[in-house]
């Protein structure tokens, strides 16, 4: 996927390039098949995200033990597990906030012992946080535009003086931010301070801030925690759109199994820092180890699974 987020063109990635329509239908089909095979081959060589034998210990406590995880391009991948299973630790390792005790993280062809957090955006990775991490003192529009902060190549003097380069990038970023705000139906609140909005709306603003950079890989940390049922429906639609329209590969950490099963292509289950199951939602739901793990912990988790 192209990393340029300028103008309206990028938003409509799902549209076919115009020259396709001129060609005959057979050739078009050939092209499509070819492209799919190509993509599959690429996926095997370069998964959007690969975790190899990740272990993490805090003092003597093992938060994660030998976790492998492979996320294919264009997939919605859920990681679920009871409280304390190590889900958030896993995400913090992927975003470089923790350094794994052992193991490696792979984005495309790059492999890391510790992911350089400062270069995350440059690698096309964005994330949201379990508890909101918005900039309360900025408007919604400015919050979303912050997602493109790394694109500003002009120094502060050129920004003050309004040099052409600074003005052009500022303009591009603002346009991209406004587009994403429209995409997530935030137009009505674009000039409000982020801290003054209801929780569910703030979650959407955070999603917008992550999406504005058109990430290749989007990490969502409990996106559905603490939002109402209606907001859950809406948010999961936005997550699906992020993949379908913007072409992002999505990894989401979730506690609430109900939403995840309908949304994800594949689900990995963590318990006590180990991966105990990995597969399609149906496979995972039927897995005895998963049922045991969930029955063994908090009661509401078990009922959630039953639903």
């Amino acid at each position: 996927m192209s990393g340029i987020a300028t103008g309206a063109g990028v938003l409509r990635l799902e549209e076919e390039p115009p020259d396709e329509q001129i060609h005959g239908s057979t050739r078009e089909r050939d092209n499509a098949t070819e492209r799919r095979t190509e993509r599959a081959a690429q996926t095997l060589a370069n998964p959007a995200l690969g975790l190899a034998k990740i272990s993490l210990t805090f003092g003597g406590v093992a938060a994660l033990r030998d976790v492998d995880l492979e996320v294919a391009q264009g997939e919605i991948r859920a990681v679920i597990g009871p409280n304390g299973a190590g889900k958030s630790s896993l995400l913090n390792i992927v975003s470089g906030l923790y350094r794994p005790t052992r193991g490696q993280v792979q984005f495309g062809e790059h492999s890391f012992d510790q992911v350089p957090t400062a270069r995350l955006a440059a690698h096309g990775v964005a994330r949201t946080f379990q508890n909101l991490a918005l900039f309360k003192g900025l408007s919604v529009l400015d919050n979303v535009q912050m997602g493109l902060a790394h694109r500003m190549r002009a120094g502060f003097l050129r920004q003050i003086m309004g040099a052409p380069l600074a003005r052009r990038i500022e303009e591009e970023n603002r346009t991209a931010a406004k587009e994403v705000i429209g995409f997530l139906h935030l137009d009505d609140v674009h000039d409000r301070f982020a801290g003054t909005l209801p929780y569910g709306v703030q979650k959407r603003v955070e999603l917008a801030r992550a999406l504005v950079a058109r990430p290749k890989l989007l990490l969502l940390d409990e996106p559905f925690a603490g939002v109402t049922f209606a907001e859950k429906q809406e948010l999961s639609q936005h997550v699906r759109n992020a993949r379908d329209s913007l072409g992002a590969t999505i990894v989401l950490i979730e506690h609430d199994i109900g939403v995840v099963m309908g949304l994800s292509d594949r689900v990995a289950v963590l318990d006590y820092g180990r991966k105990i199951a990995d597969g399609t939602p149906d496979q995972v739901r039927a897995d005895p180890a998963v049922i045991d793990a969930y029955l063994g912990v908090a009661h509401e988790d078990a009922t959630e699974l039953a639903v």
Binding site: S95, L97, T117, A118, R119, L120, A121, A122, A126, R127, F129, A133, L134, F135, K136, G137, L138, D142, Q145, M146, G147, A149, H150, M152, F156, Q159, I160, A166, I169, E170, N173, R209, A213
Partner: peptide, 21 residues
């Protein structure tokens, strides 16, 4: 400018600012 927004971002949530780049 972007630099000014970066100031506020660092003030309000340093880790989120770092992750964004």
């Amino acid at each position: 400018s972007q630099s000014g927004r970066n100031f506020i971002a660092v003030r309000d949530h340093e880790i989120a600012a770092k992750v964004i780049g």
